[in-house]
Write a protein that binds this DNA or RNA. Structure first.
Length: 513
RNA sequence: GCCGCUUUCGUCUAGUGGCUUAGGACGUCACCCUCUCACGGUGGAAACACGGGUUCAAUUCCCGUAAGCGGUACCA
């Protein structure tokens, strides 16, 4: 029995939470974290996690975004028990497919006179609003259509005037207990008669949410803090409809460096982009989990399963958390170092291919292995073992996988040199040329069949003067062409005799010209 | 403007009235390792927004103030 299964014993398992993304953009960091916390809560309680697509806004909702969001979430390791892609007992799970359900409750509210038709045009509403603002009042719908006579309504409908549906907002103090923030009280008298549908077939957010959360038996609503002001509205609608209220937990926002809600102007907010940029899913999950939540101990490195084990709502922060790239980079480096070679290889190969450093051999060789790659002009071939060795010595210096091509291109193509870079400290060109010449001699003599980091290191031993750097720096730069790189023995061991000799010769040519 | 929420090192945070010379992590600085960079190791600098209460005692409780954020749609 796993630790998780042990933990679940004794839980009622009746918890039902939902993630309700709106497909109006690619999967956003904030959405991912809300999903993560819902998932964590469901898993830690042995409850059910429901995925529901909130696509009531026909203009802005795009199917491709829905796919991006769902795929992105799965890519992070999250799964759901019910949803548009897998069905479930409470479907359909797309609001656009639930109009009949909304229609029925909308009619009920209209019949009971808890809601009414508002025939005001957008222009009229806007004018009223302007009037109120210039008069120093808080802009709010005045309730022009609140008390229309039945004949007027019939008349308007007969004339084909379009209408929206508004709820009669009762004026009272309403409060709820937020699982994270405690008691929150709002005076609904300050709220206007909010619109709940554009027509009987087009419900609006606050209404659709209430109906669905009830119909889907949701017990806990865990969502961003930007929804606290919607909660009293939804509470009222529930009351009007006679629905019980779920429990609420409002998560602190993820902030940009300027402390405002994280958005595109702060840079990348899309999960996709981070993944394409070489950030690992496990790093992203670990990082966003720590944005607003903290375990009871000092431990900071968590897998998804470990998070599920430790997670609890009462350890969620109340204030917003700035998305700190530094720490994210550090975490990503940690996970790059930790990842198994088997997982890392396909990612790296893909990146190398995209950078046109290698291309998979067009034909599998006769042994049936397909793990041979060529450089683009076909002048050199590399085994997957060769690439694995490169990763082994390079991974610890990467903050993200996308740095791989620039950091290791010299393993696949001849490096280009920069004159000043070949010179170690106060060395002259002549001294460097001499070092290179000695190196070329030693490597020429070295037996190719025992070509390892150790033998290379030992073979160079006799060349050292007082400053090893006079030999090792030119060597490293000759092999890599870079200011920063792994050590020269490791590079040489991987490159092999032929490539090492060629690179040293090229560097010699360069320094003499 | 109105309503709501929030406030511990630069950042993420621990802390629930005395155990705190306020702990950890990232970043930063110094040193070590070292041919470079990174990794790793050691050490340092760095915070309780302000003002009143309550209490023998407040970072911790209460009230104000300030600041920040969120909301204020026929978006979600």
């Amino acid at each position: 029995m796993t630790a998780y299964q042990t933990k679940l014993q004794g839980m009622d398992g009746n918890v039902r939470v939902r993630m309700a993304p709106s497909p109006t953009g690619n999967l956003h960091i904030g959405t991912a974290r809300t999903a993560l916390f819902n998932w964590l809560f469901a898993r830690s309680q042995g409850g059910t996690f429901v995925m529901r697509i909130e696509d009531t806004d026909k203009e802005r909702s795009i199917k491709a975004y829905e796919e991006n969001i769902l795929q992105g979430l799965r890519g992070l390791g999250l799964d759901w028990d019910e949803g548009p892609d897998i069905g479930g007992a409470y479907g359909p799970y797309r609001q656009s497919e639930r109009t009949d359900i909304y229609k029925q409750y909308l009619q009920k509210l209209l019949d009971e006179d808890k809601a009414y038709r508002c025939f005001c045009t957008k222009e009229e509403l806007e004018a009223q609003e302007q009037e109120m603002i210039s008069g120093g009042e808080a802009p709010k719908y005045r309730g022009i259509c609140r008390n229309l006579q039945p004949e007027q309504i019939q008349n308007n409908i007969a004339k084909g005037k379009s209408f929206i549906i508004r709820v009669r907002m009762p004026a009272k103090k309403i409060s709820f207990h937020d699982l994270i923030r405690g008691k929150i009280t709002v005076d609904t008298g300050l709220l206007e008669d909010i619109a709940i549908a554009k027509s009987t077939a087009e419900p609006l957010y606050n209404f659709a949410v209430v109906v669905d959360d009830f119909a889907m038996n949701i017990t806990h609503v865990i969502r961003g803090e930007d929804h606290v002001s919607n909660t009293p509205k939804q509470l009222i609608i529930q009351e009007l409809l006679g629905f019980p209220s779920p429990q609420y937990a409002h998560l602190p926002l993820i902030l940009g460096p300027d402390k405002s809600k994280l958005s595109k102007r702060h840079g990348t907010t899309s999960v996709d982009e981070y993944l394409h940029d070489g950030y690992l899913p496990e790093a992203l999950v670990n990082f966003i989990a720590l944005l607003g939540w903290h375990p009871s101990g000092d431990k900071e490195l968590f897998t998804l399963d470990e998070l599920a084990l430790e997670f609890s709502l009462d350890r969620i922060q109340k204030s917003g958390a700035i998305f700190n790239m530094n720490k994210f980079n550090w975490l990503n480096n940690y996970y790059i170092r930790k990842k198994s070679m088997a997982e890392l290889m396909p990612l790296a190969v893909n990146i190398y291919e995209q950078a046109s450093l290698i291309t998979a051999a067009s034909l599998p060789d006769k042994a049936g292995t397909t793990d041979i790659y060529h450089n683009v002009d076909g002048t050199d071939a590399f085994s997957s073992e060769y690439i694995e060795k490169i990763l082994a010595i390079t991974r610890e210096r990467l903050q993200k996988l996308s740095e791989l091509p620039a950091a290791t291109d010299f393993f696949f193509t001849m490096p280009t040199y920069n004159a000043s870079l070949l010179l170690w400290r106060r060395m002259t060109k002549e001294q460097v040329a001499l070092s290179l010449q000695k190196l070329h001699e030693v490597f020429s003599e070295l037996d190719e069949t025992v070509w390892t980091t150790q033998t290379i290191s030992a073979a160079l031993e006799p060349l050292y003067g007082a400053d090893k750097g006079e030999i090792l720096w030119p060597l490293r730069v000759a092999l890599s062409g870079k200011q920063f790189s792994p050590g020269p023995f490791d590079i040489a061991a991987i490159l092999g005799k032929d490539r090492v000799l060629k690179r040293i010769a090229k560097a010699q040519e360069f320094i003499q010209s």
